[in-house]
């Protein structure tokens, strides 16, 4: 029975991209195609693009990524706890709460360190 559920999802993952692919196939057949050098230029407010388009970006994006990683791993640990909460003893629930509190401590540490500021 479980295999059947996952088979359905597998088939869905194969069929779902077919619809947008079909929709993109039609313009390939009927739409006009008259490219020229000016039309194919990168848009930049009517100016010619200067330099590489893959520019350097703020390091802040990267730091947010690191903070996110901590929480993402935490959530993987918390979901089994959440599912089993009703059959767990009170002690285990409190233990889970202490685990969350340690993470909140981590968040506040990052906050005090100025990681969450946008310079």
């Amino acid at each position: 029975m479980v295999e059947q559920q996952w088979l359905y999802i597998g088939v869905f993952l194969i069929i779902a991209p077919v619809f947008p692919m079909l929709a993109l196939l039609v313009p390939r057949l009927i739409a006009p195609k008259k490219p020229n050098a000016i039309k194919l230029q990168t848009y930049e407010c009517g100016m010619e693009t200067v330099g590489d388009s893959w520019v350097q970006f703020k390091v802040q994006y990267y730091i947010y990524g690191l903070v996110f990683l901590v929480f993402d791993v935490e959530i993987v640990f918390l979901y089994p706890w959440a599912v089993a909460l009703n059959i767990l003893p009170l002690f285990a629930v409190v233990e889970g709460i202490i685990f969350i509190m340690i993470l909140v401590g981590g968040l506040f540490y990052a906050w005090r360190k100025g990681v969450l500021e946008w310079y």
Binding site: K33, L40, S53
Partner: peptide
């Protein structure tokens, strides 16, 4: 309208 629009793929 979208189907008969030209599909412009820029350089690079």
């Amino acid at each position: 309208k979208l189907l008969i629009k030209e599909d412009i793929a820029p350089k690079g």
